[in-house]
């Protein structure tokens, strides 16, 4: 299973970014190959409008199964994510990426 985290850095110990559309990085973990990828999304700062759809579009390229984030996407982003067919897990905004992953595996996030 491939999981995307919204993060403020590129390490397991990096704090999660609670925002979806304006997240600083994607941290992408492939459970099967144990491989980690990261994507620097900081250019989104220059977008005055439509950060949610734009970030969703980028996310779609990774073909992940699960998105773990903080506050959850807004309406426009949610419409795109629905099209992508990715499962959205929220409530991990105050954790590190590692903690968010563990919480997800323990079933304490939904």
């Amino acid at each position: 299973m491939k999981i995307i985290f919204t993060a403020k850095g590129t390490e397991w110990d990096s704090p999660m970014d609670p925002r979806f559309g304006r997240t600083e990085y994607f941290f992408i973990y492939d459970e099967d190959s144990k491989k980690i990828e990261t994507y620097d999304n900081r250019a989104i700062e220059n977008e005055a409008h439509g950060a949610g759809p734009k970030t969703s579009q980028k996310l779609a390229e990774y073909g992940a199964d699960i998105l773990i984030t903080g506050n959850g996407p807004g309406g426009n982003a949610a419409a795109v994510l629905q099209q992508v067919g990715i499962k959205v897990i929220t409530g991990a905004g105050d954790m590190t990426v590692k903690e968010a992953y563990e919480a997800f595996k323990n079933g304490t996030l939904s």
Binding site: E47, A48, H49, G50, A51, P53, K54, S56, Q57, A60, G75, N76, A79, V80, Q83, V84
Partner: peptide, 19 residues
């Protein structure tokens, strides 16, 4: 589009009227 109001998603074009 300067406002990300039109997106190509796979084989669909999505329009966001609010944007």
């Amino acid at each position: 589009c300067n406002f990300n109001a039109v997106l190509k998603m796979g084989k669909n074009i999505m329009v966001f009227p609010e944007l």
